[in-house]
């Protein structure tokens, strides 16, 4: 191994690590706010990438129907609740976001031809379809069980994951897709060439992390999420709606997931079930951060990315084994250094 190979592997590891970092942040966010271990995170990576790929192939993505279907379901449930609890002024709001918005999106996709749109618009379109699925899934699967134990929420997560993988196969078929890169440019940096897409991934990840930091530090909603993460009951007593916090955290997590998918789709072939493994590696990173610390999780993600790329050079057959074995020393170290606090149940 000479320096050039080491640099190339390092570059590859950091790019993958950046994606794992985003997913790890989303996992930590969802877990701290709602105590949900969000296994379906990876599915939204695939949904984001494949929705964009469907646009580029000139097909209407199946996720559009999921949006319309889930929206209708949420509208019925929330509508009936609002009617019964005499909060009829909320009906218009519910109907707009869950019925009008999905149908409007569907109408735009059907009447216009998305394959002729510029790439930016296609990306926005894919996000507009996938991101609202987050709050809808929270409403349907998690909100009724918001006070349940972590274990129950984990079981729900597994169920949601399996359902979404199945739907992914139905929507997009078994074969994968690639999308056109954001930039074809490549730069010579000493001995190695860096292509434009890897810079896009790194830049987008850094910007996203900065935006998240600003959101949590400077905005009222961000502070509400932090308050909920620190103490659910206390935040509730201060007038912060835990339902709102849950929906918002899911919205952010799904947005991060879908955007990660859109970023990696030009670099690799994305399949309906690709997301799960990517999500799991994000999960390893989140575990390194103890499911609580954002900076440690992000650093862990870079570590996972580098470990992965170097082990694929030295012992490609054992790459996954090496990456997932990392979790054992980390768990031992964490259980020795942190004091365990019993969750009151």
């Amino acid at each position: 191994m000479d320096l050039q190979i080491a640099l190339l592997l390092g570059q590859d590891g950091i790019v993958n690590g950046a994606i794992y970092a985003l997913l790890a942040l989303a996992l930590v966010l969802v877990f701290t706010v709602t105590r949900v271990i969000f296994i379906p995170q990876g599915e939204f990576v695939a949904f984001g990438a494949l929705t964009l790929a469907s646009f580029q192939a000139g097909k209407a993505p199946g996720t559009l129907w999921l949006l319309v279907g889930l929206g209708a379901l949420v509208a019925v449930i929330d509508g009936v609740t609002a009617w019964r609890t005499q909060r009829r002024h909320r009906m218009a709001h519910i109907a707009f976001w869950n019925l009008a918005y999905p149908l409007l999106t569907a109408a735009v996709v059907y009447c216009d031809s998305p394959q002729d749109w510029p790439l930016v618009l296609q990306v926005v379109g894919a996000l507009a379809i996938v991101v609202p699925l987050g709050p809808m899934i929270y409403r349907l699967a998690y909100q009724p069980l918001a006070e349940a134990t972590v274990l129950v929420l984990l079981i729900v997560s597994v169920a949601v994951h399996l359902t979404l993988v199945g739907l992914g196969l139905l929507f997009f078929g078994a074969e994968g897709s690639r999308t056109t890169p954001f930039s074809e440019a490549s730069f010579a940096l000493g001995d190695i060439t860096v292509n434009g897409q890897t810079l896009w991934v790194l830049a987008a990840s850094l910007v996203l992390i900065a935006v998240l930091y600003f959101f949590f530090e400077r905005t009222l909603y961000g502070k509400a999420l932090r308050a909920t993460a620190i103490n659910r009951t206390g935040a509730g007593l201060m007038g912060i709606s835990t339902t709102m916090a849950g929906k918002l955290s899911f919205l952010l997590a799904v947005a991060i997931g879908a955007l990660s998918g859109i970023l990696i789709a030009p670099i690799t072939t994305v399949y309906y079930d690709t997301g799960f493994l990517i999500g799991l590696k994000g999960f390893v990173a989140a575990i390194i951060g103890g499911m609580a610390s954002y900076p440690v999780a992000a650093a862990g993600a870079i570590l996972v990315g580098l470990l992965e790329s170097f082990s694929s050079f030295w012992a490609s057959a054992f790459k996954e084994v090496i990456v997932f074995t990392l979790i054992i020393p980390v768990l031992v170290w964490r259980s020795l250094t942190t004091r365990h606090i019993e969750e009151d149940e």
């Binding site: 190979i5 190339l8 592997l9 590859d12 790019v15 993958n16 994606i19 990696i264 670099i267 690799t268 399949y271 079930d273 690709t274 799960f276 493994l277 990517i278 992965e308 790329s309 170097f310 082990s311 694929s312 050079f313 030295w314 490609s316 057959a317 790459k319 996954e320």
Partner: peptide, 14 residues
């Protein structure tokens, strides 16, 4: 070796 779901095969290719 590589995996079906791998996002990168840079190491093996090098």
């Amino acid at each position: 070796r590589f995996n079906r779901a791998d996002t990168s095969v840079t190491g093996q290719v090098l």
